[in-house]
Every structure is written in structure tokens, then in C-alpha cells.
Simulated assay, not measured.
Amino acid sequence: MPISSLHARCWPLLLIAGLAPSAMADDNKTASAVFAAGCFWCVEEAYDKVEGVVGTTSGFSGGDVANPSYDQVVAGGTGHTEAVKVEYDPARVDYATLLYVFWRNVDPFAENRQFCDQGPSYRSALFPMNAEQRRLAESSRDAVAERFDRDVATEVSDFDAFYPAETYHQNFYDKNPLRYRFYKSACGRSERLEEIWGDEAEASSAS
């Protein structure tokens, strides 16, 4: 079975309502950020390792269909890409550090795909939720382009909405470790990241 088909395997779906746009939680003690770096299972794993991150949610962003299902998104036509909403404590980690982690967990030169997963639903993107996040996101993208002297395919698009994926996708890497490790290994994610970023690949901090 092709690896992309393995990732797109269908199970019974549970539709969850979308989250309203907001960079800050109600209590103003945590902040939110949305990142798309290919398979959201892998992106969740990357950010769950970051000190100061208090929660991650796999889902979809960047499209024009409300409350899409996983099957709808990967089939195409909704405009969404797989994304992860990161809740973090700004007193412990800042958005700039989250951007550092993002870039070292993505192939910034791949268009409409990431690693073995192909199609617009796997495009990489940053979804800044306010003016400061946009400034930092654009600056970080410019820095990557300058570092490698190449055009960067990763989009920077204003955040509109985030829709959580079905329950079985949440914390998949932790709940289904054998299947997850097989998928990630066969997809060549770590090898490609190391090819691009060297010792910085899959970083969980900026140190």
C-alpha cells in the first residue's frame, strides 16, 4: 500500500466544530499559533516536545469550507491544508521560537506536498493570527530564503479559521506508535529534514 494511501486510510468520522479566530485564550495566559508542515501527526509530535507548549490539536486551515472532514480535505476542493493549532505559554516560549521549530520540521522548498504526501492539502503554510505574528512569520521566511539563496514555497496567509480533525487523528503518534513510526520512517521525513537542516533538523528549541 502506498504510504500516502496509508496516511489517508478511512475510519468512522466524528465531526468537530471549528474554532473562532483568536490568538489569545480567554484567560490571556496562553496564546495560539497555527502551523502547516505536512502530516499533522508529525507536526503535533514536534510541538509537543517544545517547552512552554501546553497543547496541540490536529486539524485544517486555509480553506473555504466550514467544518471539513479529513476525507474531504485530502480529496481536494476545500482549499484546506493539514495544520496544527499550538497553544503555548508566552512566559515560557515565544512565537519566534515556535517559528524556529517550524522551519526545522518542514521542507520549505516543496510545492503542494511535504515528503511522501502530495497535493495542496499537504502544502506548508504559516497562518499568523495578528500583525506581530505576521511580521515575524514573513521575516523568518525571508531569512530562510536568504540562508539557502532559494525561493521558499511556504505560504504566509492570514488566519481565518481552524477546524479540528476527527478524534482518531489527535495525538496519533502517541496512541498508535508502531503505525506512526512506520509511516514517518517510510515517508522519509527525518532524512529529508536532515538533508536540508543538518544538525538543526527536527529541533524542539532555538538553542
Results as ranks from 00 to 15, higher is better:
V86P: 02
D94R: 08
A96V: 07
E87S: 10
F102S: 01
V54N: 09
E87F: 06
E87D: 14
G79H: 06
D142P: 05
K85C: 08
P120Q: 12
S139M: 13
F60I: 02
G79Q: 10
T57M: 10
A143I: 15
R113I: 03
Q118T: 15
Y122A: 07
D94Q: 08
G79I: 15
M129L: 15
V54A: 12
R135E: 04
G62N: 08
S139D: 13
R123V: 00
N105Y: 15
P128R: 00
T56Y: 05
H80Q: 03
Y122T: 03
W103L: 02
D94C: 05
V74H: 11
D94S: 09
N112A: 10
A145F: 02
A91K: 13
M129P: 08
V74Y: 07
A131S: 15
D142M: 09
L98K: 01
D117P: 06
A137M: 02
F115M: 09
V144C: 12
E87A: 03
P68M: 08
Y95D: 03
R141S: 03
L126H: 07
Y122Q: 00
R92F: 13
A110T: 10
P108F: 08
D94Y: 06
L98D: 00
S124Y: 12
P90A: 05
T78G: 06
P68A: 15
N105K: 14
V106F: 04
G76W: 07
E82A: 11
N130L: 00
R123T: 02
S69V: 07
E111F: 15
E111I: 06
V74L: 09
E82Y: 04
A110Q: 10
L98I: 06
Y88W: 06
V93I: 11
A66Q: 13
G63H: 06
D142V: 11
F102H: 02
Q133T: 03
K85W: 13
D71I: 15
R104I: 10
G59S: 05
G119D: 03
G79L: 03
E138C: 08
E87P: 11
G59C: 12
F127K: 00
C116A: 07
A131M: 07
F102R: 00
G77M: 09
Y100V: 08
G76K: 11
R135K: 12
L136A: 14
L126R: 01
P128Y: 02
N130W: 01
P120M: 01
N112F: 03
S61C: 09
R113H: 14
Y70Q: 11
A75L: 13
K85V: 04
V54Q: 12
A145R: 00
R92V: 14
R104K: 14
F109P: 07
R104N: 07
S140R: 05
D94F: 08
G62Q: 10
N67I: 10
V144K: 00
R141M: 07
S69H: 06
F115N: 05
Q72V: 12
L126M: 13
V74R: 06
P90C: 05
S61E: 06
A91H: 15
A125M: 05
P90Y: 04
F115L: 04
R123E: 10
G63E: 11
V106A: 03
S124R: 08
D71N: 10
V144W: 08
A110G: 10
P90D: 05
F109N: 14
L99M: 09
G79E: 04
D142K: 07
A75C: 08
A143K: 15
N130Q: 02
L98N: 04
D117A: 14
T78K: 15
A143F: 10
V101T: 02
G79D: 01
G76I: 06
